[in-house]
């Protein structure tokens, strides 16, 4: 199965985790994260959302993140599914699932991948609110989350990173 899927269709957590660890008898820990669409954000009601991405770059960027997570935490398997297109509150947006021998590496590998994805993968959310539709602003807190792993994100800051 591919490690990374960008798709409009929904995904099934149980089926994904079963496929992830199939045949891997060395796995002792599986950690998964599912991100979902909230009906509120930044003080406004959200009735729908559209996710745009950069075809080609998205897949490459996430593959590189998975390589890093595998190397860093000794993961035995990893899977990322990210949906694009129109989504509604309660819908699933993203799945990150990882398998490792022990839980410490699995917990960390999953959080590392999610922190990385939030600030380095080319996705953009546009929300529909009673005041109209608006592009979601990047959060400095997401850069801070990646910084904990020793990686400078430079995503949310006002100007591009110093060059």
């Amino acid at each position: 199965m591919p490690r990374v899927s960008i798709q409009t269709e929904d995904f099934d957590l149980s089926a994904e985790v079963a496929a992830l660890r199939a045949g891997l008898a060395g796995v002792g820990a599986v950690v998964s994260f599912v991100g979902t669409v909230r009906d509120r954000n930044d003080g406004a009601a959200v009735s729908a959302m559209t996710l745009e991405h950069y075809p080609g770059m998205t897949e490459k960027a996430i593959e590189a993140m998975v390589d890093q997570a595998v190397a860093r935490f000794g993961l035995l398997a990893a899977r990322v599914v990210h949906r694009v297109g129109p989504l509604l509150p309660l819908d699933q947006i993203v799945l990150v699932a990882v398998a490792a021998a022990h839980r410490g590496d699995a917990f960390q590998g999953c959080e590392f991948l999610m922190d990385y994805l939030k600030t380095q993968a080319p996705f953009w959310k546009k929300e529909d609110t009673p005041q109209g539709s608006r592009w979601v602003d990047a959060r400095v807190a997401d850069d801070a989350a990646l910084a904990r792993w020793g990686i400078a994100a430079g995503n949310a800051a006002g100007e591009a990173p110093a060059s």
């Binding site: 991100g35 996710l51 991405h53 993203v94 380095q120 996705f123 953009w124 592009w135 995503n155």
Partner: peptide, 10 residues
């Protein structure tokens, strides 16, 4: 060469 705003996926 692509230009875009800060990313907001996940």
């Amino acid at each position: 060469l692509a230009f875009f705003p800060p990313v907001t996926g996940g």
